[in-house]
Simulated assay, not measured.
Amino acid sequence: MTVLSILDLSPIAQGSEAAQSFRYSLDLAQHAERWGYRRFWLAEHHGMPGIASAATAVLIAHVAGGTSSIRVGAGGIMLPNHSPLVIAEQFGTLESLFPGRIDLGLGRAPGSDQRTARALRRSLTSDADEFPQDVAELIDYFSAEPRGAVRAVPGTGLQVPVWILGSSLFGAQLAAAMGLPYAFASHFAPQQMMQAIELYRATFRPSAQLSRPYVMLGFNVFAADTDEQAHYLASSAQQAFINLRSGRPAKIPPPVANFMQQIGPSERHLLEQILSCSAIGSPTTVAAQIADFIAHTGADELMIASNIFEHAARLHSYEIAAQVISSVPV
């Protein structure tokens, strides 16, 4: 059976604030633990009115402290924003607090616009082109006998699992060359998904961390008791994507009935591209759509995103996904 995990941005809905989002993230993780999800990942984004997970390591500690068995991690940390040593110390601390439960996914995008990236780093001398070297440096900090003179305390010898995240062929090549598990952002950037998967699997080199290729794919699920209700709930995420791509990022809006019929052809085409890796519908509909996606991609693991306005409806969507996965052929 394909493994299910959760990607959470600690979304901030209209009429709400970050403090409430943090409570909802912990509640979702506690439910996910009972429903059998393997991981609960939080993503680094900055300057986004609808996303509260900017201080990702802090929020991981909040979620891990309120759960007992589910793996908690970053999906991901945008490494060009940080010194590899700082991330090694942060995740060494998390691993020391919650041994055997921490994951570290790494991306090379800033997770923000250029002005915010400059504010984060104070300069733009840290370049995404340095990402492979930064990843290697970070992994070395976690090794039992680091090659460099500097030690991460805590961090040294803790062997925190490192993942490469990506939405292009670059991440696939790097993950394969370094023998690391690969997570593709198909839940919002699916265009190169199959090329990236094939490249990663074809060129994978075994490492001390991983003996064979392992692919996790982002996948949106908007599940409800009926198809009509699910499409209604999905309209919040659809509105949010249009706002973001139009340069108007905002808090998560409430759902709108028949939203797809109210927008123009260009916006509809945009959503069909961005959200092509999605399941929207009743339990029966969602089960069939998930099965088709797994059969097409051979994914080892799906990281489910359900960006739904109301918390109770969001919980129900994740619960349905967990229930139907048992009926999906391996």
Score class of each variant (00 low, 15 high):
Gln195Trp: 08
Gly155His: 11
Ser123Ile: 11
Ala312Gly: 04
Ile70Gln: 00
Gly264Met: 14
Val162Lys: 04
Ala57His: 13
Gln262Val: 13
Ala240Met: 09
Ala128Ile: 15
Asn220Trp: 00
Glu130Cys: 07
Asp140His: 11
Ala149Ile: 15
Ser21Trp: 07
Asp27Ala: 15
Ser235His: 02
Ala237Thr: 01
Leu104Arg: 04
Phe98Lys: 07
Gly15His: 10
Ile87Asp: 05
Phe22His: 13
Ile308His: 01
Arg151Phe: 14
Ser235Arg: 01
Ala18Val: 08
Glu95Gly: 13
Gln191Gly: 05
Leu210Pro: 02
Thr226Ser: 11
Tyr232Leu: 10
Tyr232Phe: 15
Ser68His: 13
Ile87Ser: 03
Ser83Thr: 15
Ser246Pro: 11
Gln192Gly: 10
Leu79Ala: 03
Gly107Ile: 02
Ile139Gln: 13
His231Ser: 05
Val286Tyr: 05
Ile102Ser: 08
Gly105Ala: 06
Gly111Asn: 00
Leu244Pro: 04
Ser168Thr: 14
His45Glu: 04
Gly100Tyr: 00
Gln133Lys: 14
Leu4Asp: 03
Ser21Ala: 15
Leu217Asp: 09
Leu244Ile: 13
Arg122Glu: 12
Pro253Asp: 01
Leu158Asp: 10
Ala52Val: 11
Leu271Cys: 02
His269Thr: 14
Ser123Asp: 14
Gly15Val: 15
Thr125Ser: 14
His31Asp: 06
Phe241Met: 09
Gly105Ile: 05
Ala240His: 04
Ala305Ile: 12
Phe98Asp: 08
Leu106Ile: 10
Leu244His: 08
Ala223Gly: 01
Thr284Val: 13
His62Lys: 12
Arg108Val: 10
Ala32Met: 11
Gly76Val: 09
Met48Ala: 06
Ala175Glu: 05
Ala74Leu: 07
Ala29Asn: 03
Met260Lys: 00
Gln192Cys: 06
Glu228Gly: 05
Ser211Thr: 14
Asn220Pro: 02
Trp35His: 10
Arg118Lys: 09
Pro80Lys: 02
Ser327Ile: 05
Ser236Gln: 00
His296Ser: 09
Leu158Ser: 14
Gly50Val: 06
Met48Pro: 06
Met48Asn: 05
Arg38Lys: 15
Phe309Pro: 00
Gly73Ser: 01
Leu106Cys: 08
Ser21Glu: 04
Ala288Leu: 07
Phe293Leu: 12
Ile304Pro: 01
Asn81Val: 12
Ser317Val: 00
Arg248His: 10
Gly298Lys: 04
Ser278Thr: 09
Asp27Lys: 15
Pro254Cys: 05
Val256Trp: 05
Leu302Pro: 01
Gln209Tyr: 10
Ala224Ile: 11
Ala109Thr: 05
Gln195Ser: 13
Leu174Ile: 15
Ala208Trp: 06
Pro254Lys: 02
Gln191Arg: 13
Pro254Ser: 08
Ser21Thr: 10
Gly15Glu: 09
Gln229Lys: 07
Glu89Cys: 11
Phe222Arg: 01
Ala18Lys: 09
His46Phe: 10
Gln195Phe: 08
His296Ile: 06
Ser5Cys: 12
Ala313Thr: 00
Ile12Cys: 02
Lys251Ile: 09
Thr284His: 07
Leu85Ala: 04
Gly92Ile: 15
Ile290His: 04
Ala55Lys: 02
His316Ala: 13
Ile325Asn: 01
